[in-house]
Simulated scan of single mutants.
Amino acid sequence: MRALLLLLALLPAMANAAELLVELADGSHRYSSAELLAHPASRELEIPADVAYKRAMHYRAVPLAELLEGVKAEDHLQAVADDGFAAELPAAALLDAKGARAWLAVEDPAKPWPALGKAGKSAGPFYLVWTHPEAEQIGAEQWPFRMVRLRILAPVAERFPALRPDPALAVDDPINLGFAQFQKNCLACHRLNKQGDAAFGPDLNLPYNPTEYLRADLLRRYIRDPQSLRHWPQARMPGFAATALSEDQLDHLLAYLRHMAGRKVAAD
């Protein structure tokens, strides 16, 4: 009877337990929320302009670099959320503490974070947040919340060859520069030419590329502020401010999209 009572007492904590799977070159590790909350490098953190909550937030967080032992600056990682959002993250930004700094915010089951929207779910149990994001133009797509997995992967161009622009283009061609912006700002939600890991938004080349059905000025406006062009309360696409995507970078992104409209793969 005592064992049964103990089990019943533990059930709420077990139900709220959460784990983050981190897969690196030397193997995998599952971190529980309790383990991370007690991590010796964890600290209380204030985020003045939180991307998910659109206001100042307070978190218990661990510097993400603490969980990336053996990862090199030239490596590439991907953070996956429970809804199919898949953020592509160059390791250099995650390891560098001089400018923008990446933190893994951990939700305490005893002190849950506020709900996001009508679904009733918070941004937890694990949320990648940044201090001084403006130092390296960290955009909204690099703030994945409800994370379940962080893994090291080959670069996007190796994994998804159908995303590559014409190989004859120079490295510094605006189209190749736009491909870099696409990886940073679009690939977390969208696929293109049926390739990509995200399962969140529509394919951006099949059956039609947005440059084929939106005027250039309207497409620019839509990327900056989706609700200004099409008001939809359930829409989840964020706007991209100039602090995260400059005018030149937006030009490059649009050049890449126009280019890829002529490099479609077969629909079936």
Results as ranks from 00 to 15, higher is better:
L219C: 06
R149L: 11
G139C: 10
V71Y: 03
E134L: 03
K264Y: 12
L6T: 12
Q227M: 14
L218M: 11
K194W: 04
L8D: 00
L128Q: 04
K118V: 08
D225P: 01
R149G: 03
G27C: 07
R146G: 09
C186Q: 10
L253V: 03
I175K: 10
H259C: 06
E212S: 13
L20D: 04
A168M: 04
F240D: 01
Q181S: 07
P40D: 13
A180W: 03
K111M: 10
R30K: 13
V148F: 00
D50C: 09
R236D: 12
R30Q: 14
D26R: 07
P210K: 04
R30T: 12
E44M: 02
L77M: 02
V51R: 06
L150G: 06
L6F: 13
L36R: 00
D197N: 13
L254V: 08
R159D: 07
W103L: 04
T211L: 06
A13F: 13
R151G: 01
M260E: 10
E158V: 08
D75H: 13
P114C: 11
N209R: 01
S122L: 05
A188P: 01
P161S: 09
E134H: 05
G70I: 04
D83S: 14
P161D: 07
R230H: 15
R236V: 13
F240I: 01
A241Y: 00
L37D: 11
G178I: 09
H252K: 08
P226Y: 05
V62C: 11
P202A: 13
G27S: 09
G99K: 08
P226N: 03
A198V: 02
Q78S: 07
I152K: 15
A93F: 13
P210W: 06
A15N: 06
A198Q: 02
A92F: 10
L8V: 11
R215D: 15
N205T: 07
A41F: 03
A100T: 04
A162K: 11
A170V: 03
A119S: 15
A65K: 13
L24F: 06
S42K: 03
L192N: 03
A244M: 11
A102S: 05
A73K: 13
P202S: 07
E46P: 00
F182T: 02
A105F: 01
R236F: 08
A3K: 09
F126D: 06
G239S: 14
I175G: 06
P155A: 09
A123E: 08
G27M: 07
P174L: 08
R221F: 03
D82N: 15
A241E: 07
W232A: 14
A261T: 07
E136M: 04
P63D: 12
N193W: 08
R2I: 12
M147W: 02
N205C: 02
A61T: 05
F179C: 02
L229V: 15
E134V: 01
L68Y: 06
A235C: 00
V62K: 07
A241L: 01
G262T: 12
H76K: 02
D26G: 01
L153T: 15
V148P: 00
T131D: 11
I47A: 04
D251T: 00
A105Y: 02
L257R: 01
L192H: 05
P155F: 09
A92P: 00
Y222Q: 10
G70W: 01
S42L: 06
H231A: 14
R236G: 09
K54Y: 09
L245R: 03
A87E: 06
A157F: 05
R151C: 02
D83K: 07
S228A: 15
L128I: 12
